[in-house]
Write a protein that binds this DNA or RNA. Structure first.
Length: 426
RNA sequence: GGAGAGGUGGCUGAGCGGUUGAAAGCACCGCACUCGAAAUGCGGCAUACCCGUAAGGGUAUCGGGGGUUCGAAUCCCCCCCUCUCCGCCA
């Protein structure tokens, strides 16, 4: 959510920010609504002030037992009633329209976010790891099917397309990956483990920015709840409506949860394999920080995600998303892209974003230093650390051998006692 | 799911149709006392928005939304949440 006063103060800067995202200027429409709303509010408030005075006079007169005096004010009070009703309706209509307009606008890109039109303009920040170059690599779906441990057909019978059934050691490997990531974030990176709700109210999704604009990407339940598309929603909304003592910041939280995405509009993309599913597991990191700390926190968080890939010895590159590829709530984002051998391409496995005060405004999440008056909106960050399903894909493809067996990364040995390779016989 | 009790400022907690944005306590800030601290005393201390260059003025907010009334924290309706008991259940 944007601060109207900031837009009022510098509409050009706002339009320029939107333009960097490839969006048309809107400040004029916003300010017109804002102006009309304030005018309506002023008129309303004057009427309310008068009503208050008159009501007090009536109360005073009645208290004094002067029925005639009370009666003399009633006519004006009656008249004010209609004025106030009409003016309230006008004001709230304008406020609702202004709010709807603002709620649908994405965050302004940060100063250090590179400009660009789309994915192709993202900027590589760094690259890590050696790409193997010893012949063609089979993709994880073929490997999994050959092992008899990854079954898309049965999953489709149960649930439809974009679901998978993992079995035996492969299911165990997936579980180990999640555990490993979660343990690293909690024991090495200082994140507090949280086990949050997977179903949330619309309010929570509004807070993080998925609603109202991206309803079609979400699963909605019959009792008007929503399946979380990421634990970012649950974790970030933990501080919704809170006034936090600045001493408790930064709050760093992590969770391993299933994520549910309708993937509307993605038909035809990544239809094979586990890259794009309706349900997948992910370890999420969320940081709640004081406003002046969010830039450094983004670097830190990104490093926490990178550390997982390094430990798994999976080659990756870190991309700074350009303005055209930036998510709705983010002002700056780093994507981690892991090497997917079968595709000969880097694919997103983590996305770490600084949302500034954008989500905090929607959630009403503030902080304040002891003795300070009022409060400031906190800054919120979220990042995957990492997407477990895609990590499984990367491990399978990276650690396969010519016989179709999968070696277990060193980092996971402690989590998989007795399992050093997944072989077709297994 | 059924029955009941509640949701008031950063926290605890009074108020239960009129001058109550809201008693009191705690916390916090300032001042006094003190070598200093504690204790004590005095004072201050909600948020959002609107008008105003400012000083200042105004409006709204007592879980959320409607309603009754000249006037609602107080009355009515709907919703959300918490607690107690019963039922059901991994």
């Amino acid at each position: 959510m944007h601060d109207v006063r900031a837009i009022r103060l510098d509409p050009m800067a706002f339009d320029q920010g939107m333009a960097r995202r490839g969006l048309p200027p809107v400040s004029e429409a916003i300010l017109a609504l804002d102006h009309a709303r304030r005018e309506a509010q002023t008129v309303l408030q004057e009427a309310q002030a008068r009503r208050k005075q008159v009501a007090a006079l009536i109360g005073k007169a009645k208290g004094a037992g002067d029925a005639a005096a009370a009666e003399s004010h009633l006519a004006e009070a009656e008249a004010l009633k209609d004025v106030i009703a009409a003016q309230t309706a006008a004001e709230s209509d304008l406020a609702a329209r202004l709010n709807a307009l603002l709620a649908g606008l994405p965050n302004l890109p940060g100063a250090t976010t590179p400009d660009g039109a789309g994915e192709g303009d993202n900027v590589e920040v760094r690259r890590w790891g050696q790409l193997w170059d010893n012949g063609p690599r089979r993709d994880h779906a073929d490997l999994g099917a050959a092992l008899g441990l990854m079954d898309f057909e049965t999953a489709a019978r149960l649930a439809g397309s974009r679901f998978v059934v993992l079995k035996g050691p492969l299911a165990r490997l997936e579980r180990a990956l999640g555990q490993f990531m979660l343990d690293m974030q909690t024991t090495e990176h200082g994140y507090t483990e949280v086990s949050p709700p997977l179903l949330v109210r619309g309010q929570a999704l509004y807070g993080t920015g998925q609603l109202p604009k991206f309803e079609e990407d979400l699963f909605h339940t019959t009792d008007d709840r929503w399946l979380i598309p990421t634990a970012e929603v649950s974790l970030t909304n933990l501080v919704a409506g809170e006034l936090l003592d600045e001493g408790v910041l930064p709050l760093r939280m992590t969770a391993l949860t299933p994520c549910f995405r309708a993937e509307a509009g993605a038909s035809g993309r990544d239809t094979k394999g586990m890259i794009r599913q309706h349900q997948f597991n992910k370890v999420e990191m969320v940081s709640i920080v004081a406003p002046e700390r969010s830039d450094e926190e983004l670097e830190r968080m990104t490093a926490c995600a990178e550390a997982i890939l390094k430990r798994l010895e999976l080659p990756f590159r870190t991309m700074a998303l350009c303005t055209g590829d930036l998510g709705f709530s983010a002002r700056k984002t780093y994507d981690l892209e892991v090497w997917v051998a079968s595709q000969g391409a880097y694919r997103e496995i983590s996305s770490c974003s600084n949302c500034g005060d954008f989500q905090a405004r929607r959630m009403e999440a503030r902080c304040r230093a002891p003795g300070e008056k009022g409060g400031r909106f906190v800054h919120t960050l979220n990042g995957s650390g990492l997407a477990v399903g895609r990590a499984l894909v990367a491990v399978m493809e990276h650690y396969q051998d010519e016989d179709g067996a999968i070696a277990i990364p060193q980092a996971l040995h402690a989590y998989l006692p007795g399992l050093s390779r997944i072989t077709p016989a297994a």
